[in-house]
Design a protein around this nucleic acid. Structure first.
Lengths: 201, 201
DNA sequence: CAGGCTACTGACCGGCGGTCAACAAACCGT
DNA sequence: ACGGTTTGTTGACCGCCGGTCAGTAGCCTG
């Protein structure tokens, strides 16, 4: 009986708001706990408009993840100036710090990764390159070394989930556990570790 | 224009056939890759009848898993006569043997576990009791030891998935990797292992 | 061959992800 | 002040999903 039926926004602005909303909603609910209709209602728009900006729910979800993933990638990127061992330590510590800052998002991400094929592939890809990086860093090539590193990445996620579920460890302890376990796994895989000189203050 | 419109079966017989079919279908397709309508069609019955025997898709899925899970539990049950260390070794080896025999089922199970809440809870429960068992066996009580063991269970699944994906290791190698990594993780967690006497022939 | 027990079915429900033609808010030149 | 154009936006619709229910019909008993 009065003003306009809806407010018209510029393309970029609407997109920006939807991404922001999605980042929020998807850290509070896992992928299939929330429907596109609910999201649209929350955004105060029609479902059709949501689909106008993002071709599918998966695409919307992935786009929503993108900025966070970019930040994570930046923080975790190993310093090429450091020797491999310290670069790895620094990268893991950065990873742990990110998880500490974004624990809900981390939990929901792992949960959703199993469900959404596209995310699954992204995570798998990251893991694969990480495995290669580590194997290259220690000069190991045997199948059992590959299995050890791949298993260790799972160890990492399991330990992190336990960590943020209980919050009764500090980051340093988790870091030590992860590094020590990686060493143990590689030893069990029969890998000869290149000795780093004088690095235990 | 002729015979009966459908064949009537006895309650138990129908149930048996549906469970058998489900065990087959769910090892070839993950939980939400297949719909109840498809399953019913495959079984040659109406969807309503399927729901007459199982109150929900989740229940059907869990029931389908039950027999396999029972067999796994039986095979993995540790021998109480053995000292803890050897009992653990035997249990892990049995677990690996089961995976070797049922690799598709194992893969689909892990995939579905993330999706189906009820299965997720079952798997979580099994993991929790396993963690307690191991912690009790080594007499460890610290949070970091708990995190180490919990993470190691993830390591186990990750390593097994890699193993059956590549099939370039034999079971003994995987067993050695798992045991060695558990030792490494516990060491990294600062656990003093009770020494077993003379057990490396 | 009548009658009952119950294994079975067809039709229906709300909600999902996804699509489409049509509408209207804002900006434009006049 | 106003008609035309652009394009951000909408309501109605689709097929499929998990799940429900009143009613049908195969089989066994007498």
């Amino acid at each position: 009986m009065s003003g306009p039926a809806y407010t018209r926004l510029e393309n970029d602005e609407r997109r920006r708001r939807l991404l922001e909303l999605g980042a929020d909603l998807f850290t509070r609910n896992a992928y299939d706990e929330i429907s596109m209709a609910q999201i649209a209602r929350e955004a105060g728009i029609s479902k059709a408009l949501l689909y106008h900006y993002f071709p599918s729910k998966q695409d919307y979800f992935v786009a929503t993840l993108a900025s966070g993933a970019e930040e994570l990638r930046r923080r975790v990127e190993p310093d090429p100036e450091l020797p491999p061992a310290e670069a790895l330590t620094a990268a893991i510590d950065a990873y742990l710090a990110w998880i500490e800052d974004n624990s809900e998002a981390y939990e929901k991400l792992l949960q959703s990764a199993a469900t959404v094929p596209e995310v699954r592939e992204i995570v798998e890809g990251v893991r694969a390159t990480t495995v290669d990086r580590i194997l290259a860093g220690i000069g190991a090539t045997t199948p059992v070394a590959r299995t050890a590193v791949r298993g260790w990445l799972w160890f990492m996620d399991g330990a992190c989930l336990d960590w943020i579920a209980h919050r009764d460890l500090d980051r340093g302890q988790v870091l030590g556990l992860l590094l020590g376990t990686l060493g143990g796994a590689l030893m069990a895989a029969g890998v000869q570790l290149p000795v780093t000189e004088g690095s235990d203050p």
